[in-house]
Write a protein that binds this DNA or RNA. Structure first.
Length: 501
RNA sequence: CGCGGGGUGGAGCAGCCCGGUAGCUCACUAGGCUCAUAACCUAGGGGUCGCAGGUUCAAAUCCUGCCCCCGCAACCA
């Protein structure tokens, strides 16, 4: 069934260059978006940058630049990476854009007028070194120098007012927060009384943000600004038709580190605006190296660009999708990358193409042969091929990307086995019709596999489809053009030679 | 008792909700094939399912306790 699919990534904070965490979420969103496009859905894929706030300001000062210049300098790094990773987003927001700022101010005004924003004195521990308030927990660690208790006039959003409603919503909408253990985590969090959210920063202390329309001495808190992108870009307050078409989002993809901001801040903001909540908030895990989180301070950050240079974008996309069970943490190692690449891509997928195209070139004048009448062996392959899209779509809709990819590559293994059993290289000497039937079946299956893998590996599957003289739009049996002359091609995924220990 | 997740052959995971020969990929061993990227196919070795109890004819799977690892504990993107 055709429908709309609106997927978002978080907008990334521009205090530093992009890393694998950013790349992972964005590739995941892109893969989901492409799967939905293949299924015929109308897709809106939104990503972008979060450019305001304390840390951006500090990063800019460190580089002796204005905050805006700093953002303008970093934005292309993200855009370039997305281009290299074949990210096909439909819109890219920067929170410093007028189209966004206007809507944030409108939202603030609206919530203020509705009585959900009030003035109060904020009292808390302030770290002079960090130039920010720290939490009680942080204070308790004793790791912050120059800490003093200060009071400050600020604006607060009545988050507490919506606590009960939120808990009820989460409980009556089991698919809202996924995976389930994150939902439980949020419900646990919400068992304690929820406070209100301080959503202002006095300009005297921090001026890099969106000005609060009803008090020009303040800018708004960066999260109150950033989260609004999910509605400001699809047209809230500016294009009712567009907004009605896309909102609510089908899924906000996030890292597990920003679960609370999305499940509590954002949802209560939407309640205050009287807007429907996104259908799903999905928190994925982290990429770990060995057993530790990838972090700059540990110097173990895998630069996605290096991987792409060495093995190509598609291989990296495939590895990231294949290796992480959505919602869990996963380990990144060069070793596991090599294994995944060699076994799935080189040995199974790439090699199958070589076998099929090589045999057709050698024994059948390089033309896709006519299948003739299928025997039970081919009917079995055909049935599996035809069933693939339905199964994959169901898994994708359940956010089981890893399982979906596994299912497709399992079918590739079935095809290699089929080749082995039928041995068309032998049949060519004894029964040419049978050889043709087998190779047609293998080629057509390979075409369907390529269509199904195209969301994960847009470039390489395009190559395969091109070799087979096909367009790659349908995943149902019988589309490959008989008689087409195969194009020659280099090895799809050259093996990574690993030195034996 | 703050809340939650995890502990399954050498490695990485599935199975646990709905008890009943412990499955997959990689690695390893032997054989086959030789169309192919030293690839592919077949067979095989290897597991006290964290520990200890309990329920049951039967537990990785349900219950209890304990140990270990990880996450959350808000206004920090």
């Amino acid at each position: 069934m055709k429908s709309k699919f609106f997927v978002t990534t978080p907008i990334y904070y521009v205090n530093d260059a992009p890393h694998i965490g950013h790349a992972y979420t964005t590739i995941l969103a892109d893969v989901l978006a492409r799967f939905h496009r293949v299924a015929g859905d109308e897709v809106f894929f939104l990503t972008g940058l979060d450019e305001h706030g304390q840390k951006v300001k500090q990063a800019a000062e460190k580089r002796n630049m204005s905050a805006q210049a700093h953002c303008d300098d970093l934005a292309p790094r993200f855009l370039n990476l997305w281009q290299k990773l074949d990210i096909r987003y439909d819109d890219f927001v920067r929170t410093t854009q007028e189209r966004h700022k206007r809507i944030v101010q409108m939202v603030l005004q609206k919530v203020y007028e509705a009585g959900d924003i009030y003035v109060d004195e904020y009292e808390g521990w302030y770290s002079v070194a960090e130039e920010r308030f720290i939490t009680e927990t942080e204070y308790a660690t004793g790791q912050f120098r120059d800490v003093k208790k200060i009071q400050e006039k600020n604006y607060f959003f009545k988050m507490s007012k919506y606590q009960k409603k939120l808990v009820e919503y989460i409980e009556t909408n089991p698919g809202f927060i996924q995976p389930e253990h994150r939902k439980n985590e949020m419900l646990g969090f919400l068992r304690q009384p929820l406070g209100d959210l301080c959503i202002s920063r006095p300009k005297a202390r921090m001026d890099w943000g969106i000005e609060i329309p009803f008090d020009r001495d303040y800018v708004t808190y960066v999260w109150f600004d950033a989260l609004v992108n999910y509605i400001s870009i699809p047209g809230y307050g500016s294009d009712d038709v567009k907004f009605k078409k896309w909102w609510p989002a089908d899924v906000h993809l996030i890292g597990k580190d920003i679960l609370t901001t999305h499940c509590v801040y954002w949802t209560t903001m939407l309640f205050a605006l009287d807007l429907p909540l996104p259908k799903t908030i999905f928190a994925h895990g982290w990429w770990l190296i060995g057993q530790t989180k990838m972090s700059k301070s540990l110097g173990n950050v895998v630069n996605p660009l290096d991987l792409i240079e060495q093995h190509g974008t598609d291989a990296v996309r495939y590895y990231l999708m294949r290796e992480m069970v959505l919602g869990m943490d996963a380990n990144f190692t060069q070793d596991s990358f090599n294994k995944c690449y060699n076994s799935d891509l080189a040995n199974d997928f790439g090699n199958l193409l070589n076998r099929v195209s090589g045999l057709i070139t050698k024994n059948h004048e390089g033309k896709i042969p006519d299948p003739g009448v299928l025997t039970p062996a081919e009917e079995e392959i055909k049935a599996q091929a035809n069933a693939l899209q339905g199964k994959v779509t169901a898994l994708i809709n359940a956010f089981q990307v890893q399982e979906a990819v596994s299912l497709i590559i399992e079918f590739v293994r079935v095809l290699n086995k089929y080749m082995e059993l039928q041995a068309p290289w032998k049949l060519a000497k004894t029964d040419m019709k049978a050889a043709e039937r087998v190779l047609y079946t293998a080629a057509e299956s390979l075409r369907i596999v390529s269509v199904m893998l195209s969301p994960v590996m847009p470039e390489k599957t395009k190559t395969v489809l091109d070799v087979l003289g096909s367009l790659g739009t349908t995943a149902s049996w019988g589309q490959i053009p008989v008689g087409t002359i195969l194009k020659s091609h280099p090895a799809l995924f050259p093996r990574i030679e690993v030195e034996k220990k």
